[in-house]
Design a protein around this nucleic acid. Structure first.
Lengths: 251, 251
DNA sequence: GAATATATTCAACAACCGTTGAAACCGTCA
DNA sequence: TGACGGTTTCAACGGTTGTTGAATATATTC
């Protein structure tokens, strides 16, 4: 029950198991094992034999079901991105609608951005925790980051940035992009739960304490966005744009 | 000139080159090549043959000079950490001293934390850029992060957190640790310069535009820290601690 | 039940992995 | 010159890598 990503597949679709212990399809068993191992040691740190052994299936099944190791990697990455981002988008539009005719607060927008992550990380099962660690790996990777994050998260991110721009009237979009850059770095590292914070703080903070994250992340990034916006408006107060181009020249 | 990490070794120490094109010692050539490749594809994504081929030396030299692949990895990580953190620490104490008898601003503290990174990234040569990408990789890795970041960065970080606590009177240290967690995620991702921001913003922002980072990172995280502090003080206004333990029970 | 499509197993491939030990090269000092 | 310690080269080791094709097993359809 835990480990279905969509939550809508029929349960008990087979009356009897086919070969192995669990009657879970081999394809998903591979995805689950790959997810956990890729999250832990990255793309190159895991062999197909590690994965298929953990999944209890034959090595050749990877080529058969996915085509190759790289395709398996992207399949793992895609699997949860879709269901996750659909929920985030719905939540965002909810927040926007609920604030009408006014504008939603930055905190509410930020919450819509990571509340689904908090929920899945807390109650979605271990697969989701692995997935978030994997996203942190990909997001920080020069090799996979630009390509994979762009392909699977950009539609959502673009929408969030648009709503953030709305909620920060007069703020140059460039500031919002930078704010998002800082946000996504903090977000992915935090949800990766590497355990470093626990060690650093001597047990005072626990990475796995998601309520602590829930209470703090939104105020933190919302204040950051406001600071960026204010700074930009203070530096060049009126972005009058094209009309006055060049008029600042001395006389 | 670029690629010396300490900046104090004698130049032109050999009158004639010993074997290869550059008279740079083989040990450092290996470190340089390893740094670039590890940063790009992680620990497992690079073979010793990749590294030694890029360095123009024999494979066996890695075992001879470092002992093994893992030891090479930590040697790469250690090399620049020391010189970097010494400078950051000096800058921090400068900031603190200069503010006496008052307290330094959060912005000034934050600046001391990443101004050395900005300087090295802008004018330290390509090796430093690779190094920061490597730090992002390590920081987000469940396998290497807790161990390696703790060993090589924690003394510095502890000091920064102490100064931040000073600068935020009455703020529970737990908030500062969380603030640092968010900060380090934003920091490492930003300095990794994966190029994702460039792609996402359609060229509006450039990851390599370090002046943009310099202007924005400090206001962002400083505002975040203040927000965390205010939130904590609003939730439980007076942390009276041990004296009143249990006295809140209903009469 | 035969035929067909899908899924899984097995064995093997060439290529590459990290590591090692012996041999060769180097400049230096006795 | 000769011996020596510090480097470098070379070749090879056993083990692992991703991938493949043929053979087998299972499920579905006629």
């Amino acid at each position: 029950m835990w480990e279905t990503v969509g939550g809508s597949q029929p349960v008990l679709q087979r009356t009897r198991m086919k070969k192995k212990t669990a009657d879970r399809p081999a394809k998903e068993r591979i995805l689950d094992a790959a997810e956990q191992l890729f999250a832990q040691r990255g793309f190159y740190g895991v062999s197909l034999r590690d994965i298929t052994q953990a999944a209890g299936v034959d090595v050749a099944l990877v080529s058969y079901h996915f085509g190759g190791k790289r395709e398996l990697f992207t399949a793992v990455f895609e699997r949860r991105a879709e269901v996750l981002n659909r929920e985030r988008l719905e939540l965002l539009e909810d927040v926007r609608r609920r604030a009408l005719p006014g504008l939603p607060s930055l905190e509410a927008i930020a919450n819509a951005f990571f509340e689904p992550l908090l929920e899945r990380s807390a109650r979605g099962g271990p697969g989701w925790k692995s997935y978030f660690a994997l996203v942190a790996y990909v997001n920080n990777s020069p090799e996979f980051g630009p390509m994979m994050m762009t392909r699977h998260f950009d539609p959502l991110v673009e929408r969030f940035i648009a709503v953030l721009c709305e909620a920060l009237p007069g703020c140059p979009p460039r500031e919002v992009y930078w704010g998002y850059q800082f946000l996504t770095g903090a977000l992915t590292l935090t949800f990766a739960e590497t355990g470093r914070l626990d060690k650093l703080s001597g047990g005072l903070c626990r990475s796995s304490d998601l309520d602590s994250v829930r209470e703090r992340l939104a105020p933190y990034v919302a204040a950051g966005f406001r600071a960026l916006c204010e700074r930009a408006l203070a530096v060049r107060p009126k972005p009058v744009r094209a009309a006055a181009r060049g008029s600042r020249r001395r006389r």
